[in-house]
Design a binder for these strands. Structure first.
Lengths: 244, 244
DNA sequence: CGTCAAATTGAAAATTATCAACGAGAGTGG
DNA sequence: CCACTCTCGTTGATAATTTTCAATTTGACG
């Protein structure tokens, strides 16, 4: 019972030593709560802290000159926020709570020390960031080369899978927790068009909706349309030395 | 005269010790040449090696089910290829030479050893991958939320800046080295529409073209339209311990 | 000279955005 | 409990952007 969500995430990649678990646990000693809609960090804010998500859902987004918004990524418990703070003085993205949230803030310097003291954890942090990178490139390809309908389907599947990682009881029905405007900001569409695409998916028998709940009625077809690839699978960490 | 391009890249971020330089140089002991159009690696290929670009230009792309292609990133000398190979058994992306190229292959295990032996280099690798990540999110926002014209302008500026990193004599005129189809695959547009956008930029006096050469005639306006942010600037590595 | 990839152009079609309006439901203050 | 306001979802009509299709044209090169 380390209580460390980040250790759990990295531990899914490779077994951790007690010393490593203890080091990770120190990152989550403090807590901070956020209400839905609150911003943890705004674009161009000075960065000094990183965070690990403990509870709830957040998003990373960028604001464009014309006022439109692009959601880059959804953040769930165990996710690391602000790794870009290791490189930049100012945050390249805005982090906003999509539900009431708890996050664990820790200092950039503390994280740097941890990386230096535990090279194997540094390697796992690199691996973890590569998984995120793969998810980012999938989204990129979706925005560039797939239809509105496919992009909306992809968001539905992605959200279900991420929610399922925390709660295995979720199978084909779940509470989405996003407004249609937010889906639009993630997929590069207008809220109006997202609405039409959801309706279309429903009329075609791929999903059902009631309130905020989504029900997958034909998941294989949905996954096919969405070009979906699970980036938390097919990992290969055989090169990693065993924990000491 | 380390001759190591990757050491030069990381050395731009922070001064390196001789031991660190020597370790990085060992990654570039072998060489491999590629002709334009050749694939260094295909999607779903088994990965075992990583590469550092020494000469020429390559691209990372994904192929979608319908046969369309999305270019994720352009690769220039000093760039590290295949960091995702640390996480995955199979490559999530295809790497193709856009010009005749030289790359330096090295084994995943050798890289893992280097990270373990030089924690400070591991930190710099993380920083370097965060810079790439920021560039990726910029492209994502561009695809999701900007016009075709803005996306084409962004590719022009990005290419000029990357070329300029290698050759400071390049200012406002350069050989693009991409077909209009390739620009389309990077921007999520058809070659036909890329052509129209280039023409429009030319007619509006923002650029001039002759053969494969592009000339910026109004760079501020071009940068404004493209929403351009230089992700190799505004870095802050003050948390990094000094080289030993 | 012939060939082939790449660039160019016009016309029509498809996709997606914009604008405008309305309805349902959740809070809120009186 | 009742208006009132707000956000969110829904729908229709119209406009803008981008794609598709179909020719040409151009330039490099064997």
């Amino acid at each position: 019972m380390s209580g460390s969500y980040f250790a759990e995430r990295l531990g899914d990649l490779a077994p951790l030593s007690d010393a490593e678990k203890a080091a990770l646990a120190r990152l989550e000693e403090r807590e901070r709560t956020l209400r839905r809609g609150a911003s943890l960090r705004r674009e161009n804010d000075r960065v000094g802290e990183l965070f690990i998500v403990r509870k709830g859902m957040l998003m990373a987004s960028m604001l464009l000159d014309d006022g439109s918004r692009q959601i880059l990524r959804f953040l769930f418990p165990g996710d690391l926020i602000g790794l870009s703070g290791l490189a930049y003085r100012e945050s390249p993205e805005t982090i906003t709570a999509l539900s009431d949230c708890t996050v664990c803030p820790f200092d950039r310097a503390a994280f740097a020390e941890l990386l230096a003291a535990h090279p194997r954890l540094a390697a796992l942090v690199i691996v973890n960031s590569q998984i995120e990178r793969a998810a980012l490139t999938d989204r990129l390809a979706a925005l560039g080369r797939t239809s509105a309908r496919a992009r909306v389907a992809a968001v539905l599947i992605e959200m279900r899978n991420r929610l399922r990682m925390m709660d295995r009881s979720i199978t084909d029905a779940f509470v989405l927790g996003l407004t249609q405007e937010e889906i639009g900001d993630a997929t590069g569409l207008t809220a109006v068009h997202v609405n039409r695409m959801l309706r279309q998916l429903e009329e075609d028998g791929l999903i059902a909706r009631e309130g905020g709940r989504v029900h997958f009625r034909n998941e294989p077809a949905l996954a096919r349309e969405a070009n979906y690839v699970d980036r938390y699978e097919k990992l290969d960490l055989s090169w990693l030395p065993p924990a000491r």
